[in-house]
C-alpha cells in the first residue's frame, strides 16, 4: 500500500463523531473610524500610516519619504508615482537586493491588525517586497476594512500564486524578547491611505 493510501485508510478506519462546519458570519467588531484604528495599530507594530487626500498628495508624500530615508534607488509599481520621481519602472532597472525603497499597491487594508493584502499582481518580482530596505504600500481608503472576516470575504486568495497580509516591517524578538525592527526584510513600512 502506498503511503498515501495507508494514511487515508487509517483515517477512514477511525469513527470520529461528525460535527458540522460552523457558520462564520457574526457580529464582528467594526469601527466607525477604521482609518484611525488602522493608524493606531500600524504604529503599535512599528509601521507608519500617512493619510493623503489624492494622487497628487500621494506623490508629494512619497517624495518626502524618499528624502527622509535618503533613498535614491527607488522602485515604484504604483501608477503616477514612479514618473514623478523618475525612478526605475516596473522594478526592472534595479536588482531587488539593491532597492532602498519599494512602493507597491496594496489591494485591501484591515484595521484590526494593520494588515495590508498585497499579491503577485501588484509586484513584478515578489522578492522586492522582502529584500528592499524600506517598503511603502499604497491603499485606497475605500478599501479599508475593519476585520479579517471582511477581508477573506472579499479576497479570492486562490486567484494569485502569491498573496500576503503584511502588517508592519520585518521584526524579531528572538534575543531576550527585545523587539528589533528589520530582521531580514524591510526596516520600515509606510502605508499611504489615499482618499
Amino acid at each position: 500500500m502506498s503511503d498515501r493510501a495507508g494514511i487515508l485508510a487509517r483515517l477512514r478506519a477511525v469513527a470520529v463523531e461528525a460535527t458540522p462546519l460552523p457558520e462564520l458570519a457574526g457580529d464582528w467588531t467594526t469601527s466607525t473610524d477604521p482609518a484611525a484604528w488602522f493608524g493606531d495599530v500600524l504604529a503599535s507594530v512599528g509601521g507608519d500610516c500617512r493619510a493623503v487626500a489624492d494622487h497628487r498628495a500621494l506623490a508629494a508624500g512619497v517624495e518626502q519619504l524618499c528624502r527622509k530615508l535618503a533613498a535614491t534607488r527607488v522602485v515604484s509599481e504604483v501608477d503616477g508615482v514612479a514618473g514623478a520621481l523618475g525612478a526605475g519602472e516596473g522594478g526592472g532597472s534595479v536588482a531587488p537586493s539593491e532597492v532602498q525603497l519599494a512602493i507597491v499597491r496594496g489591494e485591501w487594508a484591515v484595521a484590526e491588525n494593520a494588515a495590508v493584502w498585497v499579491s503577485d499582481a501588484m509586484v513584478t518580482e515578489r522578492a522586492t517586497l522582502f529584500l528592499s530596505e524600506h517598503v511603502a504600500l499604497v491603499v485606497d481608503r475605500e478599501r479599508l476594512l475593519s476585520n479579517m472576516h471582511e477581508a477573506y470575504e472579499r479576497i479570492d486568495v486562490a486567484a494569485c500564486r502569491f498573496g500576503a497580509f503584511i502588517s508592519g516591517p520585518s521584526k524579531t524578538a528572538d534575543i531576550e524578547q527585545a523587539l528589533v525592527i528589520g530582521a531580514h526584510g524591510p526596516r520600515s513600512l509606510t502605508v499611504f491611505l489615499v482618499g
Binding site: N113, A114, M148, C160, R161, G163, A164
Partner: peptide, 27 residues
Amino acid sequence: ADLAVFTRLLARSATGQPITAYTSHMH
C-alpha cells in the same frame, strides 16, 4: 474563510501581536 478565525487567534495567542508581520498565501 476559516483563515480569518485562525489568523486572528494565532499571533495574539503566541506573542500578543494582532497578526504576524507576514501571513503569506501560496497557490
